[in-house]
Simulated assay, not measured.
Amino acid sequence: MNSEHLPTTHRRTRRALTAAVSAGVAAVALAGTPTAVALTPGSSAPRPDPALLEQCADTDTGSTVCTYPDLPPGHYDVTVMLGDRHESASTRVQAETRRLMVDTVETDAGELDRRTFTVNVRNPEAQQNGRDGEGSPGLTLTFTGDAPHVSGIGIHEASEGTRKIALLGDSTVTDQSWVPYAGWGQELPTYFGRGVSVINHSGSGESTTSVLAKSVMFDALEPQLHGGDLVLVQLAHNDKTTTAEQYRANLTEIVTRVRATGATPVLVTPIVRHRFEGDQLNSIGLIVTGEADLPAEMRGVATGLDVPLIDLTAMSEELVEGLGPVESEPIYMIRENGDRTHTSEYGATVYAGLVAGALHDLGLVPERYWSATR
């Protein structure tokens, strides 16, 4: 995508993130033994352990999958050494259900690139409402790319001070199990280094009403939240019959209960659907129902309750309309199956970038936790 089509916030954030404090990235020569890297004062990254590589296996598709089934649910710091002694490499790192932790890293023969990040291991592994089943126990790391190589892995339990960014959303946010679907929440972890754990507590079909009614949704998230945590709430696509009054009441309850835990709520207006009339999105595309203009209602709640807002509707509208009806199609699943609501992996990556940019501008995550490579 040509950068001139990206909203101003996204372009500005690309520059800002380049200057952010490094969160565990250090290229080292293969000669010599890798050592732990100090990431924050008074703590260190997990040291690579050769035994952990013994639990890795190459697949028929060319990726490498490493499984650690004995790790219980929780938050884990992970160090990976990417690269190879004899060959150049091009490696991406995913955790659990296709969560992008490290985007493509290019290394020359004889070079290692060290990355450290924090992963949330949970049950169910993918969608919080169990739509895709329980998944695999423990931690799964997958190394993909044009020529993936991993030369070292270190894992230890994250500290109690680990900050959490919880996502409470629908199918456009959730960890999608099936390629080529992806939610923007799957791509968000790559923007953060060690010390921030992204909990994608979302599920297909969820609305502001359903997340409050189901014990596995908001009720299950609430006890995990503490001071310093963030909760990003993007719920609207499935509130098709929710009245404006009820929608505001539901959002107000979520905000009030999040604040009671000491965490900070952030309201995120929904991504647009790819529904055009001429060169502009129609009411369906802009998530306006017969009952309410849902993005407008969310903006009103944010203003009334003094809640930080990420206006993803406005940003995605600007992006999609700027590209036009045809050029914007790859963001969605249109060319695969005609789906104009759900995003491709590419589209999820684009929207995760918009969310990350807006979140960075809000200043709610200290600079030291941002990955300098994004």
Rank of each mutant, 00 (worst) to 15 (best):
A16N: 07
G161Q: 12
K240Y: 13
R114A: 14
G161L: 02
N200M: 07
P72H: 03
R122K: 15
P46A: 11
Q280H: 15
P124H: 05
I271S: 06
A348F: 09
N337H: 04
R275V: 07
G183K: 00
A292Y: 00
L286A: 08
G357Y: 02
R15A: 14
F117I: 10
F276T: 01
R85I: 06
A296K: 10
M217P: 00
S151N: 09
R335L: 13
G169L: 06
Y351V: 15
R11L: 12
A23N: 08
E317M: 09
A20K: 05
D77H: 05
F192D: 04
T241G: 13
P223M: 13
G169P: 02
M298C: 04
R99V: 01
G83R: 09
Y369Q: 06
L364G: 03
A314T: 12
G205E: 05
E367I: 01
V105P: 12
G183R: 01
G83Y: 09
A244G: 08
L362W: 04
R14Q: 14
E125M: 13
A19T: 12
H156D: 15
P46G: 06
A23F: 03
Q128W: 01
P308C: 06
I310S: 03
A29H: 12
A26W: 14
G169H: 02
S90I: 10
R163G: 05
Q128K: 08
A51M: 02
H274A: 07
S43K: 08
L221R: 10
T241K: 14
V198E: 03
W184A: 02
P366K: 04
A158H: 05
V350N: 00
M1F: 11
M101A: 12
A36Y: 00
H5Q: 03
E206L: 07
P73V: 12
P50W: 11
I310F: 05
G110W: 02
S88F: 04
V105G: 09
T261V: 10
G42F: 01
D339Q: 05
Y68D: 10
H149D: 11
F117R: 06
M333Y: 00
E106W: 09
P189V: 11
F192L: 09
V211Q: 03
F276E: 00
T373V: 15
T104M: 12
S159I: 01
I254L: 15
I284D: 15
Q224G: 03
L82T: 04
R368L: 08
D175W: 04
